[in-house]
Amino acid sequence: MKTQHSRPNILVVNDDGITAPGIKNLIEVVQEIGNVVVVAPDGPQSGMGHAITIGKPLRFDRVDLYEGVEMYKCSGTPVDCVKLAVNRIFKGKKPDLCVSGINHGLNNSINVIYSGTMSAAVEGAIEEIPSIGFSLDDYAQEADFSHCKKYIKAICEEVLAHGLPPATLLNVNFPNGEHIKGIKICRQANAKWAEEFDERKDPYHRPYYWLTGVFQNNDRGEDTDVWALDNGYASIVPVQFDLTAHHAIPVLNSWSFNV
């Protein structure tokens, strides 16, 4: 870890927008550790996954929301924020750490695929920056993040001290409530959303659809992020962005492609 005279540079991003309470709480934590630069969407960007903006310009403006913090709002996606930060602010001299969140709502299990919070952290890892996504099981605007802060600080300090394995980032989720039992290192649970589209009518009697669904956990293991959170623990899942199904390669090599 860097000495006090050479504090680490920390990039803070999110998907709930630059004025979200979650990012304010994350800034307060990492300010104790290093020099903070914030680049966040100018409005909510939840569920954007790893989307990027192409075909239209991005706006990127300095803002002064919190004293002593260099902050920028971006018209694009969470991933755009990371790309702009690396390219335009750090100019290739990458930060020592990228943290994303604190998200209002969990990003456990399959939710990591859809999450703008986690995709921002993935982009940081693609840029070879040690990266962490943080989420809390509370969607409320007035959510209380105070019980997460000591864990966030400890996790960030460990990552700065030890680094992360290549092409790996951390997905950290916190249960709701002020009593967290501790931290569990987990695997991603085998779960999914059972989705429905609720059909409704607009004032002109034309149908439109509203996505709804129920989260279904099909995994009874006690080593998963879902189990940890259900039992009062914070979960840490190491995530990789290599999507290759390596176990399937021998199977495909056994096929005969008669062309």
Score class of each variant (00 low, 15 high):
216 Q>L: 15
246 H>Q: 10
158 E>N: 14
120 A>D: 05
14 N>P: 02
4 Q>C: 03
161 A>F: 05
84 L>N: 06
194 A>F: 03
172 V>L: 07
39 V>A: 06
130 P>Q: 08
19 T>F: 11
80 D>S: 07
199 E>R: 13
45 Q>V: 02
17 G>L: 02
74 C>F: 05
193 W>K: 03
108 N>V: 09
235 S>A: 15
165 P>H: 03
9 N>G: 00
106 L>R: 12
149 K>M: 11
146 S>E: 14
241 F>W: 12
73 K>G: 00
113 I>Y: 13
7 R>Y: 01
62 R>F: 09
63 V>G: 05
147 H>V: 06
214 V>A: 11
113 I>F: 10
257 F>W: 13
141 Q>E: 15
89 I>S: 02
213 G>A: 10
46 S>V: 15
189 A>R: 05
31 Q>A: 13
190 N>S: 11
171 N>W: 00
63 V>R: 12
66 Y>R: 15
200 R>D: 05
60 F>G: 02
127 E>C: 04
52 I>H: 01
86 V>Y: 08
213 G>F: 02
107 N>W: 00
203 P>T: 03
54 I>Q: 12
229 L>F: 03
248 A>F: 05
199 E>Q: 14
222 E>W: 00
119 S>V: 02
3 T>H: 09
4 Q>W: 05
44 P>C: 02
64 D>A: 10
252 L>R: 08
143 A>R: 07
43 G>S: 14
167 A>R: 14
177 G>H: 06
159 V>S: 01
82 V>G: 03
257 F>A: 08
208 Y>W: 15
120 A>Q: 08
66 Y>I: 14
199 E>Y: 00
258 N>H: 10
185 I>K: 13
224 T>S: 11
241 F>Q: 02
247 H>I: 08
22 G>E: 13
68 G>K: 02
144 D>Q: 03
49 G>M: 01
140 A>S: 15
207 P>A: 13
20 A>Q: 04
17 G>V: 06
4 Q>F: 11
243 L>M: 11
59 R>I: 01
22 G>F: 08
76 G>Y: 11
183 I>W: 08
50 H>W: 07
197 F>Y: 13
207 P>M: 07
50 H>Y: 14
169 L>P: 00
242 D>A: 10
105 G>W: 14
8 P>T: 10
88 R>S: 09
87 N>L: 06
222 E>Q: 15
241 F>L: 09
96 D>L: 01
103 N>W: 00
95 P>K: 07
88 R>P: 00
47 G>I: 01
4 Q>Y: 09
37 V>S: 08
133 G>L: 05
69 V>W: 05
25 N>P: 00
21 P>D: 10
58 L>G: 03
232 G>I: 10
200 R>S: 10
251 V>T: 12
205 H>Q: 15
51 A>V: 04
210 W>V: 15
208 Y>T: 06
102 I>S: 08
107 N>A: 11
146 S>Q: 13
250 P>M: 05
227 W>R: 10
87 N>A: 14
97 L>Q: 06
137 D>P: 01
250 P>L: 04
243 L>Y: 12
60 F>C: 03
259 V>G: 12
141 Q>L: 12
181 K>Q: 12
146 S>I: 04
158 E>V: 03
43 G>D: 10
73 K>L: 01
120 A>P: 07
137 D>M: 03
61 D>I: 09
6 S>W: 05
